[in-house]
Amino acid sequence: MLKAGTVVKVTGYADLYTPQGKIGFTVTDLNLEELLGDMARRRLALIAQLTAEHIIGEGAANKSRTLSPVSLRVGVVASAGTEGYADFRGQFDRSPYRFEVYLEQSLVQGEAAPPQIVRAIEKLGALGLDVICIVRGGGSKGDLSCFDDESVARAIAAAATPVWTGIGHTNDVSIADMAAHTMAITPTKLGETLVAQVREWHLARVVAPAQRIAERVQALLDQETAFLAERRRTMTFAVRDRLSGEQRHLRATGQRLALHADYLLANAATSLVSTRQLLAAYDPARRLAQGWALVQTASGAVVRSVEDVAIGGEVDVRLSDGKLRVTITNAERTTP
């Protein structure tokens, strides 16, 4: 912790050994609050400077990096075998998605850590991945001081790839977090967020459209099925109506014809009766009954004139109840 330039408050007393010409200083108290206060002051100064340079904060350079909507190629700066890395990696392994993880090993605590972290960020940055994750499990403030290192913040800002941090801490947000595109409070949370982001994309861009397609296909099939059923029904009814209409028309025509025929028959019957009556009036039998006689020659020809017969000839005289064979003895023409 103590380095050249570090300011600490030391309490003690000085001893002067005059015979030997030596001066001694006995430390009775070393005030670390001063030391921590100095570290905090330097940290604040660094934050102010990096903010002004848009390395960290709202306008941090890495925040403007475009994040792929499906970050599946993930670069990781971590120490393999640590709990933090296992927690982070576990999120991917339990998800249904195939994440490609490129691990770049690095110390994540101590003075040697910052250059390793910077190198790892640079190496992963060159691969053109979707995202770089800096992962470290929880630790004390001192353990995590490497993430307050200026060089780490600058490496994050310089990276063309979005850098996400999952550094477990309980108090302050590290400067690396401030420089990052996105920060999560733990490695687990970082893994969860990445998986959730992929899941969200998958649901919105794959699952939902697939469901919409399935629904629309079903709706279209239902609609066309209903269309065909309706047309089939309409067709059947229309044809049945048309045929029964035709049948009704035929029946009505038949009935009209029957009525007409009855009328014609009745007329014919009436006319037949009058004709029969008329004919009856001319019936020879009736005339014969009235006393008229019909004279016929032997050949059956009707005698209409005295000239039709010769004296001495024979004729048949037909009466109502028989006929007489008569010999002509005299013939006289009557004067009209």
Binding site: P96, H202, V207, A210, I213, A214, L221, E224, T225, L228
Partner: peptide, 23 residues
């Protein structure tokens, strides 16, 4: 044609359903 299309859809539906993540 509708019956044939329905059969084809029936065949594809499980493939669409499989896209849902089993979580």
């Amino acid at each position: 044609r509708l019956i044939a299309t329905k059969a084809q859809v029936e065949e594809l539906s499980p493939r669409l359903a499989r896209l849902t993540p089993d979580e």
